[in-house]
Amino acid sequence: MRSPSVRSLPALVLMMLVAGTAVAQSPTYGVGRTPTEEEIRAWDISISPTGEELPPGRGTVQEGALAYRRTGCAGCHGAAGVDGRAPRLVKQDAEPTTNPWNLGRILPIRAPYATVVWDYINRGMPLNREGTLTADEVYAITAYLLYLNEVIPEDAVLDAESLPKIQMPNRDAWAQVPDWQPGQPRLPGYPY
């Protein structure tokens, strides 16, 4: 479901047909109003692993290093992403080849997609001034932090195109969540 599968055209057509039949259901109560497109755009801050909702903008590692200080990140997380009052942002382990599960819970460094890093900075940072960063600043700070963690090179430029393509250390080495069904044990064969 999550794998970046290539959808063939017939599959897409079939999907649209199925979707078309589902539309037949009409509202029962007629309560609530239809939001405008602008409202939905303003509220929708979700970022898919595909990055399809990422806004226009760009940022480099160098710009990120400046934005990291200018927007106040350094004040809590430390000048170099360590030794601040807030959680450290640089992995414990200097070896880039080691097991990503040993990198600590810093950043979402263990996430399979860099979109998770971008999304969290965008929705939750900085403390008490959430939502004040520009898209360019979020791209730049994401670039800087991923560079500090040896995920991307110093000359990397992040934008809506390049961010979802970043090869995170854990890109493929994680377990899918179970296919949940009501009334089923949480793990087949597990008696507890």
């Binding site: 479901m1 999550r2 979700s46 970022i47 898919s48 692993p49 979402p108 263990r110 996430a111 399979p112 997609y113 979109t115 998770v116 999304d119 969290y120 929705r123 939750g124 854990n170 994680w174 377990a175 899918q176 969540v177």
Partner: peptide
């Protein structure tokens, strides 16, 4: 699965 920051905690 959108892999939100909260979801990431379950990874």
């Amino acid at each position: 699965y959108y892999m939100t920051y909260n979801d990431y905690g379950h990874l």
